[in-house]
Design a protein around this nucleic acid. Structure first.
Length: 427
RNA sequence: GGAGAGAUGGCCGAGUGGUCGAAGGUACUCCCCUGCUAAGGGAGCGUAGGGUUUAUAGCCUUACCGAGGGUUCGAAUCCCUCUCUCUCCGCCA
């Protein structure tokens, strides 16, 4: 959520910055609603002030045993007038809030203009794609002999689910363990175990609601509010500080969690239908930091580096992309995507997305710290995948496959695999 | 699932219809005193909005005592619904 003051003070400037990411702000509508809001709110507050003053008078008069019928008569119709004004104000604030909640974040000045991923800028390229002296198989074919089973998953749940057996299931677990240990041990994050179902306040806090409800799975309940399956651990991790004022000495907060993620993938029919690139359920190790505003862009760089460290340790070639305005997520001010090399697709595919949200999420959440003037100030939130476990597994199968159908595991994983260095077919 | 108790400011804790945004304590900030990491004295100290303003200063004002409704001229206080916490019983990975 943007600061509404920004819209009031510099509507055209804000609209121009939003245009850079392909969003057209309805400035006329905003101005109309704002003008009406101002008038109605002033009127309402005047009436409330009058009521408060009169009630106070009545209280004082009664305490002295005086007659209050004169004052009572004076404000006889006040209640009705107030009700009308309050109702009108409320009715106006709803669309105004909705408008505000649907406006995406402003792109940082360093974000390139552009409409789609074609306009993203490559920042760096690490590792060299391997030259194969045999016909490269994709992860579905490599995995088939190792325990990757889509038929059974489909029987159990439907399309866009996968099932792993044996060494492959262990590899999946090993990857998550390795990532967690690296981030807690080498990068200073605190491991957190979180709920996988969260309430709507949490979803609103990080920006999934109200705009992206159709992308989420939810669980209805009879008596209580429905719960949503998390699409990323970003939601619970960031919302940990919702409605909190964090002591400055505790900053930066660095959290890491390994969780399943659930996405309905509405609107992506026909895209990535083969394999486990795009699933309704996948595991991810997520990094979240909550920092002082002045630090957040430096944090974005280091956090992205933390995700890169995993790719490097696993010997996976990748490139780092700076997303253009039009390709960024709704809540982000600046995003780097890390794209891993997939030889079978002969291309780089997203495996991590690292973003600075500035105060966009924390404003919704009222997540603050006490600044050097001892005043509450909004934190900045920065997060990134470190990494998507399923896609990392895919990348390992494809990049480290061997002619005989086996897969050579990176040394970093050996301790997590009980010493197994190669996954052999026909497990 | 059954029975009961509770939810107040950073924390503790008073307050059951009226000058309550809320006593007191504690923490924190500033000042004084004290010759020394203690004690004492004084002052200040909630959040989010709106109006005014060059102003994130000041002034005026609104809302907020778990959440949402209701009663009333007036609600932290009364009524209803919900959420959460605690205690006891039952069940249970």
């Amino acid at each position: 959520m943007l600061d509404i003051q920004l819209l009031r003070n510099d509507l055209d400037g804000t609209a121009a910055r939003l245009a850079a990411r392909g969003y057209t702000l309805d400035t006329a509508r905003f101005q109309t609603l704002e003008a009406e809001r101002k008038q109605l709110q002033t009127r309402t507050q005047e009436l409330q002030a009058k009521r408060n003053a009169s009630s106070k008078q009545i209280g004082m008069a009664k305490a002295k045993g005086e007659d209050v019928s004169a004052i009572m008569a004076e404000i006889a119709t006040l209640g009705d007038e107030l009700k009308v004004a309050e109702t009108a104000l409320e009715a106006l604030q709803a669309p105004l809030n909705t408008l505000l909640m649907f406006i995406p974040n402003l792109p940082h000045e360093s974000v390139p203009a552009g409409k789609s991923d074609a306009d993203n800028v490559e920042i760096s390229r690490v590792g060299t794609p391997r030259a194969f002296d045999f016909v490269v198989k994709d992860h579905v074919d490599v995995g088939a002999a190792l325990g990757l089973d889509f038929e059974t998953a489909t029987k159990l749940a439907g399309a866009r689910f996968s099932l792993l057996r044996g060494g492959l299931a262990r590899l999946h677990r090993a990857l998550a363990q390795f990532m967690l240990d690296t981030h807690t041990g080498a990068h200073g994050y605190t491991e957190v175990y979180v709920p996988y179902l969260v309430n709507s306040d949490s979803m609103r806090g990080t920006g999934q609601l109200p705009k992206f409800e159709e992308d989420l799975f939810h669980v209805p309940r009879t008596d209580a509010e429905k719960l949503y399956l998390i699409p990323t651990a970003e939601v619970p991790l960031t919302n940990m500080v919702r409605d909190e004022i964090v002591a400055r000495e505790q900053l930066p907060l660095q959290f890491v969690a390994h969780t399943p993620c659930f996405r309905s993938e509405a609107g992506s029919y026909g895209r990535d239908t083969r394999g486990m690139i795009r699933q309704h359920q996948f595991d991810k190790v997520e990094l979240v930091q909550l920092v002082e505003p002045a630090q957040s862009y430096a944090t974005l760089e280091t956090l992205t580096g933390h995700a890169e460290a995993i790719l490097q340790a696993l010997g996976l070639p990748y490139r780092k992309m700076l997303l253009c305005g039009g390709d960024m997520g709704f809540s982000a001010a600046k995003t780097y995507d890390l794209e891993v090399w997939l030889p079978a697709q002969n291309t780089y595919r997203e495996i991590s997305s690292c973003s600075n949200f500035e105060a966009f999420q924390t404003r919704r959440m009222q997540a603050r710290f006490r600044n050097d003037k001892n005043k509450p100030e909004l934190l900045h939130s920065v997060n990134g995948s470190g990494l998507a476990v399923g896609r990392t597994l895919v990348a390992i199968l494809e990049n480290h496959q061997q002619a005989d159908g086996s897969v050579a595991l990176p040394a970093a994983l050996w301790p997590y695999m009980g010493g197994v260095q190669v996954l052999q077919p026909a497990c």
